[in-house]
Amino acid sequence: MRDYLRRFLIAIIMAICVSLLFLGGRHSQAAAPEELKEREHWVWPADGVISDTYGTRRGNHKGIDIAGKMDTPILAVEDGQVVKSYYSTTYGNVVFIKHPSNFVTVYAHLNKRLVSVGQPIRQGDMIGYMGKTGRATGIHLHFEAHQLEWRYDKRFAFNPEMLLGRMAVGETVQGGIAAMGRDVLEASAQLRPLLEEKFSDPVTERYRVKKGDTLSAIAVKVNVSVARIKVLNHLNSDVIRPNQILIIR
């Protein structure tokens, strides 16, 4: 009888522990995006046009698609470390980056990968070139974001536009531009002729905005006019923010 009671008590304790772990995991998963909204400033990973959004295809599309030119630079949205870099029959050339916030971002269908496993990454670093490798119908970047870890069933996937800014299919985005609140900073709803010029330029120099920088100060520092910087980056105002990536020539 005593042995039966001991086993019964052990079973109850184990059940309580499992329940607490489950509830704690669910709480972390639900809270993460809201907490990051306040402190994370991701930048868009590529220049191009939004061709598909999160949750389409009967809920099976667990990312966003950015269509663009072959070999468009792909940028890391935030600091982190490469945890996977390989070729997949579905993702094609793909890179996974783990961020200090315990988020994992996925960059798929790349024409070429420029980083390897274990490599530290800074926000705005080029990690590859846009392509159509793997199971892709056209040239684009398939970008995913996951809480805690990437899983085959994509259980922890969430809409990356929660941290990038809301965009609709057909709107253009610019790699390196950060979100401000719910709106994307200086993202145009129409393709501009200069976008084609920028895509075809084989050499692009970029500048990461530092705290206290102004467009005029940056122009003097890099010896490029303010007007030219605004044209290259499709800026309609002088508003810039720390960690924003600017094309300077």
Results as ranks from 00 to 15, higher is better:
3 D>R: 04
7 R>S: 11
9 L>M: 11
9 L>Q: 11
10 I>V: 10
11 A>H: 00
14 M>H: 03
18 V>I: 15
20 L>T: 00
25 G>P: 00
34 E>H: 05
35 E>S: 04
39 R>Q: 03
39 R>K: 06
39 R>V: 06
41 H>F: 06
42 W>H: 02
43 V>W: 00
44 W>S: 13
45 P>Q: 09
46 A>L: 15
46 A>V: 10
48 G>L: 12
49 V>A: 10
52 D>H: 09
54 Y>R: 03
55 G>H: 13
57 R>I: 08
59 G>R: 11
59 G>A: 14
61 H>W: 14
62 K>I: 06
63 G>P: 02
63 G>L: 09
64 I>A: 03
66 I>C: 10
66 I>F: 09
67 A>D: 13
68 G>I: 07
74 I>P: 02
75 L>V: 02
75 L>F: 05
76 A>H: 05
76 A>I: 05
81 Q>R: 14
82 V>F: 05
86 Y>A: 07
86 Y>C: 09
86 Y>N: 08
87 Y>F: 11
95 V>P: 00
97 I>V: 14
104 V>M: 03
106 V>W: 03
107 Y>M: 08
111 N>W: 07
115 V>Q: 13
115 V>A: 12
116 S>R: 13
117 V>D: 12
122 R>Q: 11
124 G>L: 04
125 D>F: 00
127 I>W: 05
129 Y>T: 12
136 A>M: 01
139 I>R: 10
139 I>E: 14
140 H>M: 07
141 L>P: 00
142 H>R: 09
145 A>G: 12
145 A>D: 13
150 W>G: 01
152 Y>S: 13
155 R>W: 09
158 F>I: 04
158 F>K: 03
158 F>C: 04
169 V>Y: 03
169 V>E: 14
171 E>V: 02
172 T>A: 08
172 T>D: 04
177 I>V: 12
177 I>K: 15
182 R>W: 06
182 R>N: 12
185 L>S: 11
186 E>L: 10
187 A>E: 15
188 S>A: 11
190 Q>V: 04
194 L>K: 05
195 L>T: 07
196 E>Q: 14
197 E>A: 10
198 K>F: 07
198 K>C: 04
199 F>M: 12
203 V>R: 15
204 T>W: 01
205 E>S: 07
206 R>P: 01
206 R>E: 14
207 Y>W: 01
210 K>E: 15
210 K>T: 03
212 G>H: 04
214 T>N: 08
215 L>I: 06
218 I>Q: 10
219 A>F: 01
219 A>L: 01
225 S>Q: 04
228 R>G: 01
232 L>P: 00
238 D>S: 12
241 R>D: 05
244 Q>M: 15
247 I>W: 00
247 I>C: 00
